[in-house]
Lab assay of single mutants.
Amino acid sequence: MLEGKVKWSNSEKGFGFIEVEGQDDVFVHFSAIQGEGFKTLEEGQAVSFEIVEGNRGPQAANVTKEA
C-alpha cells in the first residue's frame, strides 16, 4: 500500500488526484474509495491505496482514508 494526500477532488464529477511524494500524481475515481455511504475525499486528506493500470494509465484502487 502507498500513502499520499488528496491533491484535489471533485465530488460532482466523481474523481480527483492523490499526491505521492517523489512520484507523479495518481488519478482516483470515487468507485475506488472503500467504505459505506457517500464516498468523498477532502483536499489534503491522508489516504492509503494501491496502484492499478486503468484505461488511461495508472490509477488508485482500494483507497482508504487515514484517521
Rank of each mutant, 00 (worst) to 15 (best):
F15E: 01
E12V: 12
A46S: 12
E50C: 14
T64S: 10
K13F: 08
N10S: 11
W8C: 09
G4E: 04
F15V: 03
G57D: 02
S9I: 15
S31K: 05
E53G: 07
R56W: 15
S11V: 14
K13R: 11
E12R: 11
E21R: 10
K39E: 09
K7N: 05
A60E: 02
E21Y: 12
V47C: 05
A32C: 07
G16N: 02
W8H: 04
G35M: 09
T40W: 13
A61H: 11
S11N: 12
A60L: 01
F49P: 00
K5A: 06
V6R: 00
F38T: 13
G35F: 06
E42K: 12
N55S: 14
V26N: 00
S48R: 15
V28D: 02
Q45T: 10
Q59F: 09
F17I: 04
Q23R: 14
G16Y: 09
G54I: 05
E50Y: 14
S9K: 13
F17P: 00
E66Y: 14
K65T: 12
W8Q: 00
L41F: 06
S9D: 03
A67P: 14
E19S: 13
F17K: 02
V47E: 01
M1W: 12
E43R: 15
A67G: 12
F49W: 00
I51F: 03
I33T: 02
A46E: 09
S9F: 15
K65L: 15
V52T: 08
N10A: 06
G37K: 09
M1T: 12
A46K: 14
E19A: 14
G54L: 06
K5Q: 08
F30A: 04
A67Q: 12
E50T: 14
E36D: 13
E21K: 12
Q34E: 09
W8I: 03
K65D: 03
T40M: 10
G44M: 03
I51L: 11
F15A: 03
E12P: 06
V47K: 00
M1S: 09
G35K: 04
F38A: 13
N62A: 06
K13Q: 08
R56P: 05
S48W: 15
E3Q: 15
A46N: 12
H29C: 12
R56N: 10
E19K: 12
F17G: 00
N10W: 08
F49N: 01
S31N: 07
Q23K: 10
N55K: 14
D24V: 11
G14H: 11
Q34I: 15
W8T: 00
V47D: 01
H29T: 04
S11W: 13
V47W: 00
V47S: 00
L2W: 11
G35R: 00
T40N: 10
E66D: 11
V6T: 02
A61S: 10
Q34S: 10
K13N: 06
K5T: 13
E3N: 14
E19F: 10
P58L: 10
D24S: 13
L41T: 00
S31V: 04
I18A: 02
Q34F: 08
E42T: 13
V20G: 01
A61W: 10
F38M: 12
L41C: 05
E21M: 12
G16A: 13
A67H: 13
T64N: 11
K7I: 07
G22Y: 05
I33G: 04
S9H: 10
G37S: 08
F38P: 15
N62M: 07
A46L: 15
E66P: 13
N10G: 03
S9Q: 08
F15N: 01
D25Y: 05
G35E: 08
E43T: 15
E42W: 12
G57P: 03
E21H: 11
F15P: 01
F30W: 10
S31P: 02
A61P: 00
Q45E: 13
A32Q: 09
L41A: 02
G44H: 05
F30S: 03
G35Q: 08
Q45C: 10
S11H: 14
T40E: 08
I18L: 07
F49L: 05
E43D: 09
L2P: 01
G37I: 07
N55V: 14
F17R: 00
V6Y: 03
A60V: 03
T40K: 09
E36P: 12
E36N: 11
G57N: 01
G44N: 05
V63Y: 00
G37R: 06
K13M: 10
E19G: 09
T64D: 05
G57C: 06
E21T: 11
N62D: 01
G54H: 06
M1A: 09
E66C: 15
A61N: 08
F17D: 00
E19H: 10
G4M: 03
P58N: 07
V6H: 03
I33L: 12
L41E: 01
H29W: 08
R56E: 06
R56I: 07
N10P: 03
E50I: 15
H29E: 05
A67W: 12
S48A: 09
F38C: 15
A60I: 02
S11D: 08
G22S: 04
E53W: 15
V20W: 08
N10Y: 06
F27H: 01
V63W: 00
L41M: 06
E66N: 14
Q23A: 11
A46P: 10
G35N: 09
A61Y: 10
E12D: 09
T64Y: 13
F27A: 02
T64L: 10
D24I: 11
E19L: 10
P58T: 07
S31Y: 04
D24Q: 12
Q45P: 00
F49S: 01
E50S: 11
L41W: 04
G4T: 00
S11F: 12
F17L: 04
A46Y: 14
E53A: 12
P58R: 12
E43L: 15
Q45F: 05
A32D: 09
G35A: 07
Q45R: 04
Q59R: 09
E3L: 14
F30G: 04
I18W: 00
F38V: 13
G57K: 03
K7H: 06
V6I: 12
S31D: 05
I33F: 08
G22W: 04
A60S: 02
L2Q: 09
Q59H: 08
E53K: 10
A67M: 12
G57L: 02
G4N: 02
V47P: 02
I33M: 08
I33W: 05
F27P: 01
K39C: 12
M1E: 06
G16S: 03
G54Y: 06
Q59I: 10
A67Y: 11
E53Y: 14
D25L: 07
G14I: 06
G44T: 03
D24R: 13
I51M: 08
S9Y: 15
V52N: 04
F17C: 07
E12Q: 12
I51E: 02
S9A: 15
D25S: 05
V52E: 06
V6P: 02
N62Q: 07
G22N: 07
S11I: 14
I33E: 03
E66L: 15
E43F: 13
Q45M: 12
K7M: 03
N55Y: 15
G35Y: 06
F15S: 01
G57M: 03
E50Q: 14
N55P: 15
G4R: 00
H29V: 04
G4C: 06
E50F: 13
N55A: 14
